[in-house]
Design a binder for these strands. Structure first.
Lengths: 193, 193
DNA sequence: CAGGATTGTTGAACTTGTTCAATTTTTTCC
DNA sequence: GGAAAAAATTGAACAAGTTCAACAATCCTG
């Protein structure tokens, strides 16, 4: 059951009954995405939220200099959301790209609104999820200010070993906000110690 | 009425009745804070959330190298929250310091929980507020990766002229994640153009 | 208004990270 | 399995940002 992971994810955030969680899950549909394919591209309006049950995605933006800047990776048990575009229904700045053959549980914007109406308790779930995410983003910004590239790289390896081992160094560099050449130099210096 | 600003702030986020908004506001109490004083210090548990009605605060962290890193400024109409410490009731990493004589509307943790119980609609308010904040933090991280210090400085001046004009350059440098010496050099170079 | 404290400015030397280009290694896919 | 593509490595020159120290300007506060 690919819904098992979603149910556990919800249960970790709120104390809902099995029936309520089943009802929430019934609003989601499975979608498979092949390696390299996009679930969202820059300029389109994000009409869904996703929860990854298999595979891995990168959520990135292409800046004015043409660099691919990675906001985050979403492997199993991660949410795949462009909060800004989904909330305001404005064109997205982001790309969601599968880095492996993947499977995602999708809820459409209109269905999510029906869900909020039908089960107001769900507001609490997404309130808590958003607050946790907010706290995590604030900590990440602080790390970006306080740590060197090497320290951020080591933090990433320690914190997300399961993701780090599956993706290329180019992707990691894009996440850390450095060039892949510099990441390579960091690694070779580390080995000499 | 210092509650007027809070009411408008809530109304901008959700479409509640006047009575509901009044009820929410009744959970908040006014607190004055003198310039230089702290509302929260590193190591203590954040037991309140605040909404600034007068003055200006800086929310900062002191890192292992002793640098003061500013997460954000909260002037009138801004919320003063340590999401992580408030949510988990764990010791805070942050300091809330008044940069001017200030006035804040405060809601205590226990009262906020009563408010959620009494008026479940409030979940929606804070769900939306958190999602907006989340989107803003993601964009800020992208700016930190994609823009140079000079570009971030100009963005700050353009986006928050009301705050920029009230605080010292040292504070701005702490927000941008650069040294105040370098900010000074950026400014002198800009003038030569 | 005097004077101590904080803030801002400037320069020189230094560190961190970038750019570009060439080469090697690994992966992909027919 | 072999060719093409993508990823990783390395070096040299460069740009961005830091550090430290000295000095000037401003702002409190008694």
């Amino acid at each position: 059951m690919s819904y098992q992971l979603l149910k556990e994810n919800i249960r970790r955030n709120v104390n809902f009954s099995d029936m309520q969680i089943d009802e929430i899950c019934s609003f989601f549909n499975t979608k498979t995405v092949k390696k390299g394919e996009y679930l969202l591209t820059q300029g389109s309006i994000c009409k869904f939220e996703g929860f990854v049950t298999k595979g891995c995605f990168r959520i990135f933006i292409i800046d004015t200099k043409g660099n691919e800047n990675i906001l985050y990776f979403a492997a199993e048990d991660w949410w795949l959301i462009d909060t800004d575009s989904f909330m305001n229904q404005t064109p997205s700045d982001l790309y969601f790209q599968a880095l492996e053959d993947s499977e995602v549980l999708i809820i459409q914007k209109a269905d999510k609104e029906r869900l909020y109406d039908q089960l107001p308790l769900v507001e609490k779930l997404f309130r808590i999820m958003s607050q946790k995410a907010l706290a995590a983003w604030q900590k990440r910004l602080i790390r970006n200010h306080c740590l060197t590239a090497k320290e951020r790289y080591q933090y990433f390896l320690n914190t997300y070993p399961n993701i780090a081992s599956r993706i290329t160094d180019r992707q990691i560099a894009g996440y850390l906000g450095i060039t892949h050449e510099f990441l390579s130099k960091i690694k070779s210096k580390s080995l000499k110690n």
